[in-house]
């Protein structure tokens, strides 16, 4: 993966098991987000292969729009559609891509909003919601399509500290329900308690990986140690 002359990702070899929560940490510019965005091809890698749930995402003739419904994505800036209510944010893809009737789509959307604890905000517009609520609606929007894997791109980085908890709670519930998750985040405490595996990336390569207890307590690489020391305080 590269932008012009700048190679962002080089030789990443990573596989995620079903129901696994893999946490990706690393300094900014290390390629974490790019790696995530390659998984549903919001960025096009110029070499390499990515396989999700048995289908090669990077294949030349793949029905990306169909595949993307099985890969949920949550963004740092939420990216809710400001001109639509919370419910309409969730139903848009259900109706236009899945072809569900308004009634069925509303039902599915309400179930998803209920799951993130925001059923009473279904009629609210994004501007009327707090950042944490907006991010939960964004999670519901992805969940409603029943994805096989969820990608979280710094889901709490744009939130006020007191709102982070609600989003992490929803993510933990997802994990407990058996969702496969790939999370780029700086929430080390969450990583410690919820992640199955932590990956430390720097300058486009995976420097080190392992279970959180091991990686946080006894990092093998100097780069990992330096990074962790910087983040810890």
């Amino acid at each position: 993966m590269s932008y012009g002359m700048l190679e962002v990702l080089k030789g990443i070899d990573l596989s995620v098991a079903q129901r696994e929560l893999v946490f990706i940490i690393g300094p900014s510019g290390s390629g974490k987000s790019t790696l995530l965005r390659c998984c549903n091809r919001l960025e096009d890698p110029n070499a390499g292969t990515i396989i999700v749930d048995g289908d090669e995402v990077t294949a030349r003739r793949v029905d990306l729009n169909k595949l993307r419904q099985r890969i949920g994505m949550v963004f740092q800036q939420f990216n809710l559609y400001p001109h639509l209510t919370a419910r309409a944010n969730v139903t848009l893809a259900l109706r236009k891509v899945r072809g569900l009737s308004r009634r069925d789509a509303d039902e599915t959307a309400d179930a998803a909003l209920d799951r993130v604890g925001l059923i009473d905000k279904a009629q609210s517009y994004p501007a009327e919601l707090s950042g944490g609520q907006q991010q939960r609606v964004a999670i519901a929007r992805a969940l409603a399509l029943e994805p096989k894997i969820m990608l979280f791109d710094e889901p709490t980085s744009a939130l006020d500290p007191e709102l982070v908890g609600d989003v992490l709670t929803v993510m933990r519930e997802l994990k407990d329900a058996g969702m496969t998750m790939l999370v780029v985040s700086h929430e080390m405490r969450f990583a410690r308690s919820a992640a199955d595996r932590v990956i430390f990336m720097d300058k486009g390569v995976i420097v080190e990986e392992g279970p959180p207890t091991r990686l946080f307590k006894r990092p093998k690489q100097k780069r990992t140690r330096d990074f962790l020391r910087q983040v810890e305080h």
Partner: peptide
């Protein structure tokens, strides 16, 4: 913002649908 198209595409809308339902109304 480009994030609007990213979000729409990530849920399976094609490029034209993303413009018509998400970008153009705004």
């Amino acid at each position: 913002g480009k994030g609007q198209v990213d979000a729409a595409r990530s849920t399976g809308l094609n490029a034209l649908q993303a413009q018509i339902y998400v970008v153009l109304p705004q």
